[in-house]
Amino acid sequence: MSIFKKIMTAIRGGASEAGEAIIDANATRIFEQEIRDAEHHLTKAKRDLTGVMAEQMAAKREIDRLTREITEHEGYAMQALEKGDETLAIAVAEKIANLESTLADQQHAHDSFSGSADRLKDLVKKSERQVAEHKRQLSMVKTTESVQKATSAITDNFSSSNSKLLSAKDSLERIKAKQQKFDDKMKAAELLDSEDSDTSLQAQLKAAGIGSQDNSANSVLERLKAKKK
C-alpha cells in the first residue's frame, strides 16, 4: 500500500485522535534508516563512477597512443620492404602484431569500463529518484503527525483557557463590525479634518477684514460712546 493510501486510511479510520500515530514511530525510524542507507549507497556509487570514468579515459588515451604507434610502424615496415630488407620488415611486422594485440586488450578494457560507467550512471539516477521519493513519503508521514500534534496542542490550549470557539459566522460578524468601526473612525477623522480647514479659511477671511468680525472690546466701547452722544 502506498504511503498516501496508508495516511488516507488512517485518517478515515479515526487515527486522527490525539496520541494515535499514523504509522508507528518504530516504522518511521526504520524508514529513516533506509533513506540514510540509500544515501550512503548513492555516495559510494558516485565515487565508484568517478573511478570507472577515470579508468575509461586512461584506456582511451592508451588506445590512441597504440593506434598512433601502429600507424608509425606500418610506415617503417613499408620503408623496409621498399629497401628490400625483408628481415627488418618481419621484425617490424612482429612489433606491429604485438601492438595490435595490446590494442585489442585495451579496446576490450575500454568497452568494459564504458559499460560499467553506463550501468553506474543509471544506478545513480535510479537511486537519486528513489531517495527523493522516500524523502517525500517520509515528509508526508511526518507532516500528518505534526499537524495532528499541533491540532491537539491548539485544542488543549483552547479548552484550558476556557475561551469559547465562535462559529465562523459570528467571527465574521465581529470582524466586520470592527472593520466598520475602524472605517467610521477614519471617516469621522476626515470630516473633522475638513471642518478644520473650513475654520482656517474663516480665519483667513477675518484677517482680510471680510465676513463677520468679532465683538472686540474696542467695538463695544465705540458702541457705548455712540449711545452717550
Binding site: S139, K142, T143, S146, V147, K149, A150, S152, A153, I154, D156, N157, L166, D170, S171, L172, R174, I175, K178, Q179, F182
Partner: peptide, 25 residues
Amino acid sequence: ISGEVDVLQISILGREELPVFISVT
C-alpha cells in the same frame, strides 16, 4: 502554544476571532 509540537498562535489586530497557527516541521 507548547505541546508535543510547538505551535505559534498569531492574532491579527481587528481579526482576533480568526487566528493563524504556525508550526514548523
